[in-house]
């Protein structure tokens, strides 16, 4: 470990500023009177939030986002955890191949998945809406749960399960009383990660929701049609929710990078 030189220190600080400035500005603008997203911010105000909360589209979008995000969180926790258990029972080689398959949807640009799904839904005349968005999200959120739980199981002490069996516990009882409590922090973290990904998705939602709206598609609409300053308030809310879920996710799993 070396110490920081002046050069590396200023580079690191620049990186921090670069990463944070755009996000910080949106938050500051949302609380300032100036409607033009320029300096100065103007007097502090909650006006843009009041305007946003008076917008019925916002509540419709929030409701859809909540339904989708929570469903995706629960469903990907179930399918992802089960698959991670399955993979951790397999030998390393086949398990890695399985993981590659499961994570493939994350590796492609979202537009490809979005277009493929939109084409397929159109082909079978599926009524598009929240119910088509949920599985479309699930396919690229479940990989995050699989990866988190799979790596947790790599350090799992299987002697605990064997002792429980030795003491006469049933498989269900072992899962509920031994395995689940131990992996609970990772499972909660992984679900929050999945929810952040789902909540923030725009492209796939846009192509699979039909006429409905979620928070990101509402932002998109605001960007396309008007220069509505309450977009900063909406953006801040989305940031708080996605960054908040991520913080919960990384704190509970004690992820260190």
């Amino acid at each position: 470990m070396r110490r920081w030189s002046a050069g590396s220190l200023s580079f690191a600080l620049f990186s921090l500023v670069f990463l944070l400035t755009p996000l910080v500005l949106v938050v500051l603008f949302s609380f300032g009177e100036n409607p033009h997203a320029t300096l100065p911010f103007g007097h502090p105000t909650l006006h843009w939030y009041e305007e946003l909360f008076a917008n019925s589209n916002f509540w419709a979008a929030l409701k859809n986002s909540a339904i989708i995000t929570l469903s995706v969180g629960v469903l990907s926790a179930i399918t992802g955890t089960a698959a991670a258990f399955g993979f951790s029972n397999m030998r390393e080689g086949p398990a890695q191949i399985g993981l590659q398959f499961i994570t493939a949807p994350v590796m492609l640009p979202p537009l490809f998945l979005a277009l493929a799904l939109a084409t397929a839904y159109a082909a079978i005349d599926a009524p598009q809406g929240v119910l088509t968005v949920i599985p479309s999200h699930l396919v690229f959120t479940q990989p995050f749960v699989v990866l988190v739980i799979y790596s947790r199981m790599a350090t799992f002490d299987y002697a605990l399960i064997e002792s429980a069996r030795d003491l006469g516990a049933s498989p269900l009882s072992i899962f509920l009383n031994v395995t689940l409590p131990i992996i609970a922090p990772n499972l909660i973290g992984a679900s929050f990660l999945a929810m952040a990904v789902s909540l923030d998705d725009f492209v796939i939602t846009f192509f699979t929701i039909g006429g409905g709206m979620t928070l990101p598609t509402l932002i998109w609409g605001m960007l396309r049609t008007s220069l509505d300053p309450s977009i900063n308030a909406l953006g801040t809310l989305v940031l708080v929710m996605t960054v908040g879920s991520s913080i919960i996710a990384f704190k509970t799993t004690r992820y260190r990078g």
Partner: peptide, 8 residues
């Protein structure tokens, strides 16, 4: 900030 606010 990884999954935070693509459009934002």
């Amino acid at each position: 900030t990884l999954f935070g606010g693509y459009l934002v």
